[in-house]
């Protein structure tokens, strides 16, 4: 009796999961097929042949390699900034008992819920001011010819540095929470032992805390990477130069070419863009629960 009932429930489960899987995977079919279809169109169709030209085009006629490189640099640096700054801050938050600890942690939750479009206009103004200051500084130390190329690296508008810092700032609150939660789990005894041995704060961090909190730092890094890699609004707003363009915008622009959209190329590029996100996501899965549960359990 019982067995029959549960096997029916099991059948329902299979049926439901099967339909859900189709719903989840069906949209991807077009990207996969079109990326190897010599006659790719905007719509789902069986390819008449197989071709690798779309992928080749990314790196030859188009600037795909450059976009990929730019994305890696910006998102990679933003992730590094978050890990370092978030690591130091998360440690401090875990170890302090000061009056500002609680308000600070609450306040940065609010940062997480701020919608980025709401900030984009004033943020542009802030970035611009920073950019002008930086330009003045750069002009005073490098020859005139080098100002623009230098600004492309350290500028705040249409430069790597600004985008890196903005992306890092927006992901920092989550990272601080995650890393703090992990440091909370590192017993103070180890540290005190190290203090006895005369290790200063940086030695303690490097020898004891980092190895022990590595999963936390890893989780923060992966989540930052995924969020920043997928970010569309910030690169759309802050990058103009073709040579600094990031993947999401390159992809978006490829789609907006009036009367000239190459869907095969578009899909190949979309796959290339998605790959790192999926890899990072597959590593981060086990952290996700801890992250959000961290919000409740502290």
């Amino acid at each position: 009796m019982v067995i029959r009932k549960f096997s029916r429930a099991q059948a329902t489960s299979y049926g439901f999961l099967f339909l859900l899987t189709i719903f989840c995977l069906l949209p991807f079919l077009w990207v996969f097929l079109a990326s190897v279809d010599p006659n790719a169109r905007q719509f789902l169709q069986l390819p008449q042949g197989l071709t690798e030209t779309h992928f080749v085009k990314i790196f030859t006629t188009e600037n795909g390699g450059r976009w990929f490189f730019n994305s890696l640099v910006v998102v990679g640096c933003a992730t590094a900034v978050v890990v370092v700054v978030g690591g130091l801050g998360g440690y401090a938050l875990s170890r302090t008992n000061a009056w500002w600890k609680r308000p600070f942690l609450y306040a940065i939750i609010l940062v997480r819920v701020l919608p980025p479009t709401a900030l984009i206009v004033p943020l542009y103004k802030v970035m611009l001011t920073a950019n002008n200051v930086m330009r003045g500084f750069v002009q005073s130390i490098v020859p005139a010819d080098w100002v623009r190329p230098t600004m492309q690296i350290v500028g705040f508008v249409d430069g790597y540095l600004g985008l890196i810092l903005v992306m890092a700032a927006l992901q920092l609150p989550l990272a601080l929470w995650i890393i703090k939660t992990f440091f909370d789990l590192v017993p103070k005894d180890y540290e005190e032992a190290a203090i006895m041995d005369g290790a200063n704060v940086f030695q303690r961090i490097r020898r004891i805390l980092v190895p022990l909190a590595l999963p936390g730092l890893g989780a923060a890094a992966l989540l930052t990477f995924i969020a920043a890699w997928g970010d569309f609004l910030m690169p759309l707003t802050f990058i103009s130069s073709a040579e600094l363009q990031l993947l999401p915008i390159g992809l978006f622009r490829a789609f907006l070419r009036v009367n000239d959209v190459d869907y095969g190329f578009l899909c190949a590029l979309a796959l290339l863009y998605t790959l790192p996100a999926i890899i990072a996501f597959s590593y981060s899965r086990r952290f996700l629960v801890q992250t959000f549960a961290g919000g409740v359990k502290g």
Partner: peptide, 18 residues
């Protein structure tokens, strides 16, 4: 490394007005 990167970006920009 930084200087090289800047140099790479600077190549092609001669001294004339742009």
């Amino acid at each position: 490394g930084c200087s090289l990167a800047i140099l790479a970006l600077a190549i092609g920009s001669a001294s004339a007005a742009t």
